[in-house]
Each structure stands twice: as C-alpha cells, then as structure tokens.
Simulated assay, not measured.
Amino acid sequence: MATPDASRHTPLSMDGNPTIDERASHCFGCGPANPQGLHLVFSTDNSDPEHPTATAQAQLDRHHEGPPGYLHGGLVATLLDEAMSKLNRPLNVLAMTRHMEVDYIRPVPLYKPLTITSRHIRREGRKLFHQAEILLNDTVLARGHGLFIAIDEKLLAAAGLTQPED
C-alpha cells in the first residue's frame, strides 16, 4: 500500500510517547494492525517549531477507486485529514478534527506515486489551524484546510473514550 514497512508509522524520534490511535494500532490512516487501512508512514519536520510539517508517500490502487482510474473523493479527504492530524504531535497536543474544507483541484489518479504534505499555520488557544496537499510530482491535486481542537487526554480517559495501552 503506502509503504514497504507498515509497522513503522511514526518517526523514531517520537517513540515512547504513542498517541491514542497509535496505541490502538487500528487507525485507518496510519494503523499497522488495520488490514484494510492505508498504513501511511509520516515523517515530521520540526525544524521550525512554530510551523511543523509532515510528509508521507502513497500509491493507492483499485481498492480505493471512485471514478474509474481515480481515487474516491472520501479517501482524498481522508489523506488530507490524516496528514493534518500528524501535526498535533510535534505541537505536543491531543487534538481532533473540528472542521475541514477540501478543494478537489484535479482528479487523483490510482497507481501513481503521491506525496501528502501538511503544515501547521497557527494556533489560537485550543484551536489549531492546519493545511495539507496531495501532490503528483509538483502538481497539487487536492488541498485541505482544517481546524483541530486540542483536548485533554485525561478527560477522554475519564469518559472511557480511550483504549488501554497494551
């Protein structure tokens, strides 16, 4: 699917502090234990701590088809959302998507090497603003803007909304 090493879905520098979805290992976008998942592997660049970026490579196939020969629009949105969500970790927050807009600029072809990139734009209190793009070579095929809301992991745990660590 997206990577030859589906078991490696976070950079080595982030080991030891797994997110909720990483502990569950079944995240559709990045979970190595999800047999139907995309198994995306993101690398993050935190050289500018105010504006971290995340990047993944993917090449999707007929299992992900919408119109003949092209990626399903819902999966385009999934790729963008997944890329933006990877920015929360270098910002040291647990956050969930509150709102997302997708611009479908060109159809996303199947069987082609795609690059998915994201960048943190700004923060306003608990609100995190991110953007992401899907590229084929240097051509932008889709772009998304997302609003993520930082949440307290302890509140999720108290509400029973987290899975226990293995």
Rank of each mutant, 00 (worst) to 15 (best):
C30V: 07
T78G: 05
R23W: 00
T44I: 13
P90M: 06
L75A: 04
V93C: 14
G73E: 02
D21H: 15
A77Y: 06
D15Y: 13
S43Y: 03
Q59P: 00
E65S: 05
D81S: 08
C27L: 09
P49Q: 08
L80H: 09
L91F: 02
L80C: 09
S13A: 15
Q57Y: 04
L79S: 04
G37W: 07
G37R: 11
A83Q: 10
A33M: 04
D45R: 07
N46F: 01
H26G: 06
H51P: 09
P35C: 11
G69Y: 08
D48F: 02
C27H: 09
Q57N: 03
V93S: 04
V41F: 08
A77Q: 06
S25K: 15
G29K: 03
D61F: 04
H51N: 15
L79R: 01
L91E: 11
N17F: 13
S47P: 05
G73T: 03
A54P: 04
N88M: 15
L75Y: 14
M84T: 12
K86P: 00
T53G: 05
V93W: 01
T97I: 06
G74C: 02
L38A: 07
M84S: 10
G29Y: 07
M14I: 01
T97E: 08
G16W: 06
K86Y: 10
L40M: 12
P49L: 03
T44F: 01
D48N: 15
G73V: 03
G66A: 10
P49E: 08
L71W: 02
L75R: 03
L38C: 04
D45P: 07
R23I: 15
A54Y: 05
L71N: 03
S25M: 15
P35T: 12
E50T: 13
P90C: 06
M84P: 11
P67A: 13
L94C: 11
S43V: 05
